[in-house]
Design a protein around this nucleic acid. Structure first.
Length: 793
RNA sequence: AGGGAUAUGGUGUAAUGGCAGCACAACAGAUUUUGGAUCUGUUUGUUCAGGUUCGAAUCCUGGUAUCCCUGCCA
């Protein structure tokens, strides 16, 4: 149920929601409108999950509206099939955008109108140089661009050419429409970006109605504005494009207008999400298709049997920030397991069978074995648990019939003739519990020529027998044969698109060419995991035949499985493994099998020795340093000031004398940033009295700095400000003690923790006192009084 | 190289001058008719060097590292 999943999602709380809350508070927008804008040229994958979740869930959280937008402005590679696929996948995830479905291609006419408006305003022009020439003229990082000879065409000529571009009078590439912004901008995006290009291509929706198509940088902001989007989120690589976004909004005077916010992408260990590489995997047959359960596409995850709730839980858990990050695959696996644990009834299947004969059992017994373990039953709120068909019943009724017969199968791995230390399953002469059926003892076993165990002869023991472990089993007569597909990670390394110098290919053949010399972009193929799909034939207990096809099970001790929705048939069952159970035994085995010890952790990056070097100063700057230190400024402050025109200029009218050092320090530490932003209204000359007040102990450092910040913003003289606010008056001992007592009373838990030894809380209390006294308390005294008060009683 | 962005345990993310917290992972123990789940506990962190401050992950200065931009893709 999407609704319950939504309710279960924890609140988004990140730098974007902070902005939204401010915007809502200030009344900038009446409500929140977001959009998810995929281009229909491929299928959605786990990476998109994050972006769509962020877009949609943010709107949900603020009671706003979310739009689905197909960003189909480049006909190449786009199709209705992809558009439909995207919509199917998003609906599977539980999203419902109702009326708010948009195709960029529906607005080609409006974009065109805005383009003419820009031309008319002189903000856009038709350029007629070749692509190569345009790239050359754009310049590079240290050369500014050169205007093309067409940049100064008149409005009429531009309009005429643009209309003829639309009319199809020119060949592809003959002309483009460019924004006239700034050819010398350090932001390359602003060097007259292309707005429209001529491209004779069949559009899957617009057909051949257009031979010019708008570029992303032009179309996207307009479409946001047309839809009434308020907060437009995109990934980090669009940071530079925001300048075009803002330019367009300003030139076309949209109000209220949307704003763009960028977030860091999330990639996932052991997966790739590059459209080109995914296509390569499909086309070259490394996987069976876009829905091969090992693929990161949503349709593949759907076929794998992962639930949308799990995918959403994952999306909400990975966090939002302004850094691209790679998420630990364990987070995804945990979300999948955690979701299935309470949804998947337990049944038994033997994937790799070996025959067991219970010599003392004649005839069949029918056992009733519970679908759920005790802990899931206990965790059920209403005391009811589900049957595979979904009906909720009392836990005693949540059972299925399982036949116990003389001939059984158990898992090959659950018998060991030479058990390793700590092995808890069946051994020669040893005992083990058959899940739900009792304890058996292995009396003897047969092997084939190569020593493989072929048959175990065992005895079912009486009640009261003891066994160290429990294994699963099925009746050889009653169980249903089935194929099992055991999926593992598609890649052997966490970062298949990276270098992986430590990687050793499993079957490395130095004769085989291509390891070193292969094209770089196919390098990821060498990291394919040869064991990513293992197929076995075994048996599943007969009870599953009466369950619905989409039942997800936990095959006890094996993992979560369901019928492959494509290949499984009534008379030829195929079960795919959604995910394994966690396997603590495998962990300890791996640990035992002697990995080199002392591997510990990787050494921290060496401290850079040259960390403390100061930049070289020009002779003139050196002279400035000498002059400033002569006036009393500290060496470090002097060096900072001498290198900065703004700070230097500010200090020219500072009073010489005892107060200079303090004023210089404030200039560097408190005023530098607002000074450079041109936001400081106070003069350095006015700061001398403040420095005197501080030096004479009339005000505390804290009050002085608060006054400084206020004065800088307002232009008022700081001394007058202190006078007006009454911040100069000292605090009597009695007043301070009263305030301290009040604070201790208000924070009993912290007081107790402090007395219990958490002395770090002294900082917390100090902060409380400073806040309560508006900084008037002297920190030195506060500490003493606090310690005294906390020690008392 | 010019511009832009970013940096908190193994991984991801909080802490908006005042207790470095949470999740996943790992480890240990308890519990268990799943070597699952659950419960308890533990280990591990502010990129570096200075500075301001009673107090810095947070403010200032400088360094380092990583990513993005120079498509008529999005």
């Amino acid at each position: 149920m999407p609704t319950s999943a939504r309710a279960a999602s924890p609140q988004l709380d990140n730098f974007i929601t902070e902005t939204i809350e401010r915007d809502l508070q200030s009344g900038k927008y009446a409500g929140v409108v977001t959009r998810f804008p995929p281009e229909p040229n491929g299928y959605l994958h786990l990476g998109h999950t994050f972006a769509s979740f962020l877009d949609f869930q943010t709107a949900v959280q603020y009671g706003g509206r979310y739009h689905l937008r197909l960003d189909d402005t480049n006909p190449e590679g786009e199709s209705q099939e992809f558009a439909d696929g995207i919509m199917d996948d998003l609906r599977w995830m539980g999203w419902d955008w109702g009326e708010n479905l948009f195709y960029a291609s529906d607005n080609f006419e409006r974009y065109y109108g805005y383009a003419e408006q820009l031309i008319t305003q002189g903000d856009a022009y038709v350029d007629s140089v070749s692509g190569d020439e345009m790239a050359r003229l754009r310049g590079d990082a240290h050369t500014s661009g050169t205007p093309s000879e067409y940049r100064e065409r008149g409005v009429e000529e531009n309009l005429d050419l643009f209309r003829r571009m639309r009319a199809g009078e020119f060949a592809d590439g003959a002309h483009v429409l460019r924004g006239r912004i700034d050819l010398s901008s350090a932001n390359m995006k602003l060097r007259d970006p292309v707005l429209y290009r001529i491209k004779r291509a069949w559009h899957y929706r617009a057909g051949d109605a257009w031979c010019i198509y708008p570029m992303y940088d032009f179309q996207h902001p307009l479409q946001d504005a047309i839809e009434g989007v308020t907060h437009s989120m995109c990934s980090l690589e669009f940071v530079d494009n925001r300048a075009i976004y803002d330019w367009l909004m300003e030139r076309l005077a949209f109000a209220p207008r949307p704003h763009q916010y960028e977030f860091g992408r999330r990639s996932l260990e052991y997966t790739i999400v590059s459209k080109r590489k995914l296509r390569q995997l499909v086309n070259e047959g490394h996987v069976s298709g876009w829905d091969d359960p090992r693929m990161p596409t949503l349709r593949a995850q759907q076929r794998l049997g992962v639930t949308p709730e799990a995918v959403r839980a994952f999306a909400s858990q990975i966090g939002v920030s302004r850094t691209n990050r790679t998420v630990d695959i364990a987070v995804y696996e945990n979300a999948v397991r955690d979701d299935l644990n309470h949804k998947a009834p337990r049944v038994m299947a033997v994937l790799d069978p070996v025959r067991v004969t219970l010599g003392n059992l004649d005839g069949a017994r029918t056992l009733q074995i519970p679908y759920w373990p005790h802990d899931v039953i206990e965790a059920s709120g209403d005391g009811l648990v589900a049957l595979p068909n979904g009906a909720r019943v009392a836990s005693e009724q949540a059972v299925r019939d399982v036949a116990l017969t003389r001939e059984l199968f158990i898992e090959r791995e659950d018998f060991s003739a030479e058990p390793p230390k700590g092995y808890k399953r069946l051994t020669p002469g040893g005992t083990v519990r058959l899940r739900g059926a009792g304890i058996i003892r292995a009396d003897r076993f047969d092997t084939d020529d190569s020593g493989n165990v072929t048959h175990i002869h065992a005895t079912l023991l009486e009640e009261g027998a003891k066994a160290g472990g429990v294994i699963h089993w099925v009746s050889a007569e009653h169980a249903i044969p089935a194929e099992f597909r055991l999926y593992d990670r598609l890649f052997r390394v966490a970062n298949p698109e990276g270098e992986n110098p430590d990687d050793i290919l499993p079957d490395f053949d130095p004769e085989q060419p291509g390891h070193e010399s292969g094209p770089v972009d196919t390098g990821f193929l060498r990291y394919l995991n040869p064991g990513s799909l293992r197929v076995t034939r075994g048996y599943v207990e007969a009870s599953v035949t009466s369950d619905s096809q989409d039942t997800r099970y936990q095959f006890e001790r094996q993992g979560y499985f369901w019928r492959d929705p494509v290949d499984s048939r009534e008379d030829a069952l195929v079960f795919g493994r959604i995910i394994t159970l966690k396997d603590a035994w495998a962990q300890t085995q791996k640990a035992e099998s002697g990995k080199p010890k002392g591997e510990g952790k990787k050494p921290k990056a060496e401290a850079v020795v040259a960390g403390g070097v100061q930049p070289a100063l020009t002779p003139q700057q050196e002279a400035g340093v000498t002059r400033l230190t002569g006036l009393g400024a500290a060496e470090g402050d002097a060096r900072t000031i001498a290198r900065d025109e703004t700070l230097l200029a500010f200090l020219t009218d500072a009073a010489p004398g005892d107060t200079f050092a303090q004023v210089a320090s404030w200039t560097v530490n408190d005023l530098a940033t607002p000074l450079r932003a041109g936001e400081v209204k106070v003069r350095a000359a006015d700061l001398a009295t403040l420095a005197e007040l501080l030096a004479s102990g009339k005000v505390t450092t804290r009050v002085a700095r608060d006054a400084l910040a206020l004065a800088a913003a307002s232009g008022e003289a700081p001394a007058a400000l202190i006078e007006r606010e009454g911040l100069g008056a000292g605090l009597s001992e009695a007043e301070l003690e009263r305030i301290v007592a009040g604070i201790l009373e208000k924070n009993p838990a912290e007081v107790e923790a402090y007395r219990g030894g958490k002395t770090a809380l002294l900082g917390f209390f100090t902060g409380q006192v400073m806040r309560a006294t508006q900084g008037k308390a002297e920190p030195g005294r506060v500490s003493g009084v606090l310690k005294g008060a906390l020690a008392a009683k």
